[in-house]
Write a protein that binds this DNA or RNA. Sequence first.
RNA 1: GCGGACGUGGUGGAACCGGUAGACACACAGGACUUAAAAUCCUGAGAGGGUAACCUCGUGAGGGUUCGAGUCCCUCCGUCCGCACCA
Length: 874
Amino acid sequence: MANERYNAPAREKHWQHVWEKGQIFRASEDETRPKCYVLEMFPYPSGRIHMGHVRNYAMGDVFARYKRTKGFNVLHPMGWDAFGMPAENAAMERKVHPGKWTNANIDTMRGQLKSIGLSLDWSREIATCSPDYYQHQQKLFLDLLAKGIAYRKSSKVNWDPVDHTVLANEQVIDGRGWRSGALVEQRELTQWFFKITDYADELLRGLETLTNWPDKVRLMQTNWIGRSEGMLIRWALDAKTAPNGHSELEVYTTRPDTLFGASFLAVAADHPLAKAAAGKNPELAAFCDECRRMGTSVADIEAAEKRGFDTGIRAAHPFDKDWQLPVYVANFILMDYGTGAIFGCPSGDQRDMDFARRYDLPVVPVILPPGEDAATFALQNKAYEDDGVMINSHFLNGKSTKDAFDDAAGRLEKQQLGAKPQGARKVNFRLRDWGISRQRYWGCPIPIVHCTDCGVVPVAERDLPIKLPDDATFDKPGNPLDRHPAWKHTACPKCAKPALRETDTMDTFVDSSWYFVRFTAPKSDSPVDKKAAQYWLPVDQYIGGVEHAILHLLYSRFFARALCDTGHLSFATNTREPFAALFTQGMVTHETYKSQDGYWLQPNEVKFEGEGANRHAVEAASGRPVTIGSIEKMSKSKKNLVDPDDIIAHYGADCARWFMLSDSPPERDVIWTEAGVAGAGRFIQRVWRITDDIAERFPGKPGARPADFGPEAMNIRKAAHRALDQVAKAIEALRFNVAVAHIHEFANVLQTGLSKDGEGLNWAAQEAAFLLVTMIGPMMPHLAEECWARLGYNTLLANEPWPAAEAVLLVDDQVTIAVQVNGKRRDELVISRSAGTGEVEAAALKLEPVIRALEGRPVKKVIVVPQRIVNVVG
RNA sequence: GCGGACGUGGUGGAACCGGUAGACACACAGGACUUAAAAUCCUGAGAGGGUAACCUCGUGAGGGUUCGAGUCCCUCCGUCCGCACCA
């Protein structure tokens, strides 16, 4: 056995088989042990596993395996986010059914995941495209509908007239559909929505409790929810100029303090007042049409000037009914924020300033910035949007911005217009309700029937699941469900007359909003097994990419609450947060290569020559020069992919895992390099050699501990226990690169120590091997099992506990402390850990380099930080 | 435009709560073993000066606080990310 190289690919298969046979990663509820739910974002079955998956799942696996060694009852499941557009595109392009394509991908990817050696409970595997899953989602939809959380409304959508489908905003590029290239139309469609806005405040407040989430994600969600405190203010319209039926205009503002700086009002092109006014004015109608056509693309908005059209309508200022302001239709007002109408204060808002300058409207400064003189203060074309002292504002003059806000708001609340107060405080959110209707086949059918007599009727629960028909056609664009000859024809659940099914399916984000709940009882007859969910939830550690910082993570937080409010779920914790801790890992990147004629080349098509600045590349086949491009996320289009299968077949899964975890902090991008992988492979062999060597020279497990250890043995023992302690801390904090460094450090000490001899070395070596193997276990589980067996243990390491580090070995009696003179390090001092301040000071002042550095100056002060540093000030 | 993060050797990165900057790894150089190579082992290395002991400089730039700053504060430069007419 000795001196043989460790054959990772062969042994890994063996250990995977052993684990699987023993079913050791199966989880079940157990009230006697603390639980730990470890989850990585489940993959979309796109075809093959890529390195990003390997990194994500390796991290989760280290954490899950570590927690298991610490005595936790660990749930670590895996499944498939299996509905989505790529399957339908594949169907269109390759004439293969989306289900068949998806299931084939799942089979491939399951096999790949298994080859990584993850400690997953595969008995809980779910696929969202299976009726076993989506029938429960349909039930949830019905309950949300009954509770008023799901509702139908008409709204504007991006409609692609060629593909006959709704497009998400991200799919509209320069006003054209991303696939068809057709000019996108704004269409009014009736769609299903979830009332996430009802939860805006709770979702916002909940973020404060998520202290184990990255600040970045919390901030992004905070901004996305976009809470603002302001007022609704109603303005009386001048009867002579206003259209019939319009006597007032309600605006939303966060700055009632700047009311005396107002110089105009503006409404969106779709505002009822604009429409009414346009009815009598063709020129205005044309302007409104123009406004509607804009705003589909980001570029348009950037380039767009502030433009408006004076409707001729006049409105009375709330604090001075003789002060008449013009009402414009303006292109920068959004109909779906606030009331779709504003008052413009040019001195206090840059957009209003731009608008005022263009249409020559008054600009009255109302806020004096700190440090400015009221007599000389003037604004050019730059508005002042911050706080200050009120000027030109009658009764508000001299007040602070905040006091002025309260004063103005208070007056407007008391003041009457008609029978109601003229103003009301109002909190507004940027967040909109979640539109979930998609005109697609490969999604969860919405369980609704449209009846000409009864209207919108929910499908009866006993009729669930509403399954997708297998025989849909994908040969032309549009929704295959809608044009299916039979599927949509059904009987009304209420009156039994012929009726039509809803042919829209749900946004795939709905599927992923509760899969982590389903994992807690994947075979349950009801959507959620309340008891199981209460035992396992919340997820203790969630790991995934930042790209889901907003949508998926916000939808899931909403869904958890919606499930509680429909009685499906209750949390044992006092918040309703589904993910107690979140970690967002970085991407896997690689250099890119381009041939002379501008084609991307795969890494294995390229040969390298030279080093450092002289490093260059040529095409392996032809020798023609290659341009080494930037380091980018691995992608098919740039051809800088490395296939995990190749790496695993050549180096083994442990090697890929170890490389991914080394060096780069997990939240940052990791650059995949051939040299780095080879280095990881060398370390694997080194661990094997050390273990093999110890097993050979000091066979057996550590027995009765010797009374004394020589310095060599002590050295090894200290390094071992320190590493054990540090690695544990690093893994708990998900700082895998630091854990790796500590293991390296220990391996170095151990290897050097083994070449020596001394009292107790035999025992220390046996202990060190035991600890080394234990601490690599979570990261390189196959190698660890192999070494474990080689050392003569006849258990599975995966079932072994994490040993406790011996506290006495973690601290030295002697400490080395740095000695500074005037803050500059001059020497170091080895002294007893318990040495008092005076003792340390005296010893430091005696040091030759200290005396030299003082150059005869008297010592003014000595600062002693125990066990750390001495600073002599002279 | 608004908001946020980051900037440390040739490279990836470490550095507890303000306390010896560069751990650990990659790459590199030299050496040992070998007929040779691979593999492995040993040694070296932030920059500059000095035979050496040692000295000076050094964490994007410039200021500041402190006995002491990679770490805290201010200004600037650069890179990356998020949002984008949200009233």
